[in-house]
């Protein structure tokens, strides 16, 4: 089976929600990946829609890139609504 491609599986659990990564399957083509994903990850109404994506087409950030990628946003507190203090009289905004 090693010659079969690996696919990552994403399932939308109900309408209105995002697809979420649930795991992976091996398959000879996308159609089989879809069928295998259905049998493996949605045996109990876990989803209303499935995506299968060849794993080798995903570009992922490495954990040692964490600082480079995410640290710059840490000192930008002004991006959060809670940074802006309003007088109580203004009420809910």
């Amino acid at each position: 089976m090693s010659e079969w491609r690996l696919y990552e599986v994403f399932v939308r659990s109900k309408h209105g929600l995002n697809h979420k990564h649930v795991g992976s399957v091996h398959a000879s083509d996308a159609e089989m990946a879809m069928e295998n994903a259905r049998d493996l990850y949605t045996r109990r109404n876990e989803g209303v829609s499935i995506w299968v994506v060849p794993s080798d087409t995903i570009t992922a950030s490495a954990s040692d890139e964490k600082e480079v990628l995410f640290d710059p946003s840490e000192d930008k507190v002004y991006r959060h609504a809670s940074f802006y203090k309003l007088p109580d009289e203004v009420g809910h905004m």
């Binding site: 089976m1 010659e3 079969w4 000879s28 083509d29 089989m32």
Partner: peptide
């Protein structure tokens, strides 16, 4: 399994 690969 062989048939599946050939089909794909």
């Amino acid at each position: 399994r062989e048939a599946a690969v050939a089909y794909a």
